[in-house]
């Protein structure tokens, strides 16, 4: 197996076949196993469309997508859905089961899995997201953050390799957001998960391994946070980078290169 668990090659997609305008235009990138890749871009830049292409909800007009070296096609998409899962923005709309554990079991039922194996996998998935105590809860009694944990458990039950998050943290308050992120990061490290997270939060993006900047359906840039935020013209930058630029403008001797928070604190306290 190659080290690229996702390979996107020259993918083009448009919703309206009459219009020439492409929602996704000649897009190519790869993601490594165990990597956290943040996808950023303005509203309408095609991020959600990209997510739906990656999980086979839509098929590219041209180009190819490979998941673990298998090409994603109508014939292979059902099989590949064990390997790649998607969490949507609104936790309410993706809760299918009537209780937490029913919801986690949904994907397993679809595999026609025997009860005993389902039970075991559901219990384990709930434990992985620390929601065991809520197994019998009704979704309306859960907070937004808890609902998204359940959504993750529903995917983990399938033992996937890749999880795609489409602005999954938007509806959460900052505290739940941080908890959810550190949970994902831990799961990623323990289980070699690849995470593709669509986000508007530049501080979250700064914590990713790499960032893909999408603009009008094209890859504007892809690279390490340091590289991406280095560019002066980018308006949305993490807080630390904004502070560094401000200090520089005010005549400080701070180095003219992107810094992480630790680097900045270390430099200030030198």
């Amino acid at each position: 197996m190659s080290m690229h668990c996702i390979k996107v090659e020259n993918v083009t997609f448009h919703y309206n076949l009459q219009k020439q305008e492409h929602t996704i235009a000649d897009l190519s990138f790869t993601a490594r196993r165990g990597e956290w890749l943040a996808v950023v871009g303005h509203n309408g830049s095609g991020k959600s469309t990209l997510a739906s292409l990656l999980v086979g909800l839509r098929m590219p007009s041209s180009g190819r997508i490979y998941i673990n070296d298998i090409e994603l096609k109508e014939e292979t998409k059902w099989e590949l859905r064990n390997q790649i899962g998607l969490v949507f923005q609104n936790p309410e709309n993706q809760f299918i089961g009537t209780t937490v554990k029913d919801d986690v079991a949904f994907a397993l039922e679809n595999q026609n899995m025997p009860y005993d194996e389902m039970k075991q996998r559901v219990d384990r998935a709930l434990a992985m997201v620390s929601m065991t105590d809520y197994a019998d809860y009704d979704p309306s009694r859960l907070s937004g953050g808890q609902k998204q944990r359940v959504a993750i458990a529903g995917l983990l039950a399938l033992h996937p390799d890749i999880i795609v998050l489409d602005e999954a943290m938007v509806m959460l308050d900052p505290k739940s957001r941080r908890g959810f992120m550190s949970l994902l990061d831990e799961l990623r490290k323990q289980h070699q998960l690849t995470i593709i997270s669509i986000t508007h939060d530049m501080n979250e993006a700064a914590a990713a391994d790499r960032i893909l900047v999408l603009k009008k359906g094209k890859v504007m840039e892809i690279g390490k946070p340091g590289q991406i935020f280095q560019r002066e013209e980018r308006l949305d930058v993490p807080f630390i980078e904004a502070l560094r630029r401000k200090l520089k403008k005010q005549g400080s001797t701070i180095p003219d290169k992107y810094m992480t928070e630790d680097e900045m604190v270390w430099w200030l306290c030198r």
């Binding site: 739906s52 999980v55 909800l57 059902w78 859905r81 064990n82 899962g85 998607l86 949507f88 609104n90 309410e92 709309n93 993706q94 299918i96 554990k101 029913d102 079991a105 949904f106 994907a107 397993l108 039922e109 679809n110 595999q111 026609n112 899995m113 025997p114 009860y115 389902m118 039970k119 559901v122 529903g154 995917l155 399938l158």
Partner: peptide, 27 residues
């Protein structure tokens, strides 16, 4: 309509096909 679409997508992503046999977790 938006919710229904989200829900249908969520079901499909999690492998729901209407004519396939399914086991049942609820006992």
């Amino acid at each position: 309509l938006g919710r229904a679409e989200d829900m249908a997508n969520a079901m499909e992503v999690r492998g729901y096909q209407s004519n396939n046999p399914r086991s049942s977790f609820r006992r």
